[in-house]
């Protein structure tokens, strides 16, 4: 199930520091658990999260098996231009979840 929630302002003044919060639904199977038969449940986690804005990668995180399911990532950036913010999660199965929100920057 690929679904994400983005908490970002719709508008910001140029130069303003804005907080972005990205919540995604993912089971984040650690790869350390076993079934009752002893078989390892294969690892299936989001390993990379990125955010692009105004032509640049403004945030990147490498995630590891200790991460909770449905991770919430919060960070800040400086509003520069009216451009989309593109959030991307990439998991072990090669599935990418992408979510885009438009930011309007005023003078």
């Amino acid at each position: 199930m690929a679904s994400a929630l983005i908490d970002a302002p719709k508008t910001a003044k140029r130069g303003e520091i804005i907080t972005l919060r990205a919540l995604v639904s993912h089971q984040m199977e650690t790869g350390y658990r076993r079934e009752i038969s002893g078989a390892v449940i294969p690892r299936l986690i989001i390993h990379t999260f990125t955010c692009h804005y105004d032509g640049e990668e403004i945030f990147r995180a490498d995630l590891f098996p200790a991460m909770a399911a449905n991770p919430l990532i919060a960070f800040t950036t400086v509003a520069t231009r009216s451009e989309p913010l593109v959030f991307r999660w990439l998991d072990d199965a090669g599935v990418a979840i992408t979510e885009t929100v438009q930011l309007v920057v005023t003078a």
């Binding site: 679904s3 994400a4 929630l5 983005i6 908490d7 919060r21 919540l23 995604v24 449905n70």
Partner: peptide
């Protein structure tokens, strides 16, 4: 906050 409540997913 509905944007941080994972149940909203």
């Amino acid at each position: 906050n509905d944007l941080s409540n994972p149940a909203m997913l």
